[in-house]
Design a protein around this nucleic acid. Sequence first.
DNA 1: CATCGATGTTGAG
DNA 2: TCAACCTCGATGG
Length: 347
Amino acid sequence: MPEGHSVHRIANQFEQSFVGHRIEASSPQGRFAAGAEQLSGATMVDSKAVGKQMFLEFDNGLFLHVHLGLYGAWDFAGQIATGASMAETRTRRMATRRAENGKDPETGKDPETGKAAETGTPAHVADDDGEHSMASIGAPRTRRVRMAEQEKQEDDLESFPPEPVGQVRVRLLSDTAVADLRGPTKCEVLDAEGVDTAISKLGPDPLVDSPKKGGDRFVAIAGKKRTPIGLLLMDQSVISGIGNIYRAEMLFRARLNPHTPGTEVPEETLRALWKDWTKLLKSGVELGQMMTMDGLSKKAYAQALKSRADRHWVYHREGLPCRVCGTNIVMEDMGGRKLYWCPVDQA
DNA sequence: CATCGATGTTGAG
DNA sequence: TCAACCTCGATGG
């Protein structure tokens, strides 16, 4: 599945194109008919991501909770955001949240209730395409974007809303946009209490928790466990949003042996991991893809953005020479997933 | 065109 | 520990 960055991007897309709109919910596939009925007719008032989970809040007090799992995806069509406007949304959301949280985000004393600030935000009509988009000249009224592990811009639409294609678990339709969900591992209606319960099981997320509080929480949990750091990074109750690619890459970037027990990772290294995740997550949200290498020449960077094979230090590079020392990258199973690492640099 | 595997999680055994 | 979930791009014939 999409790791944390994709889920935040999707939440941003909802924020920008659906929040403030009345929604017709349906389940073309039928498997979510009851849930869709509970939500239909309500207005979406908030959209937020925590790790790989997303929560869409409606003005009837209910939430749609979605986890995409391994191959779930949202297809958006209509007046929707693309490219650069997505990054803008993130910036606006972060600023709003900071403002809402008030004076003392570090102590967390005063959570504040109001999430109302954004609910009055007028519909944001898709503006010009960003740097990665196509088809911006001639400004089509509606367009279609798939948001999943990879995003892809599809053809402009002739009619709105488009016919649902394939197994669509949920369709959310507003006056200006439509979102189709397919293949999720989790799709349910929750009340506020259910949302709190779900979020309470999750470790800190750099785009939700403050740098200090989030970092402290991660260090406290991870530093106490004898579990290998390679498993801790994938444990969503320890830190939110990291998946198999970011795991391998973060371990390499820290030159850390994946088998090191959490208790034996120096605290400053744990802090550095949190900081690195913050950086990678933000970059992933802005870029719309995982770029885990840095220090690249302009040319190498451009190439990396084009081809997935050039974007990572170790992921999916079994048997290939380490980009730093030339040793062959090894692959092993850790936690039922493929782990790639350099046995020399990460000795 | 058929098969495989994947950036994930749950729950049965 | 492993199958199931349910989708689709990549791969091979």
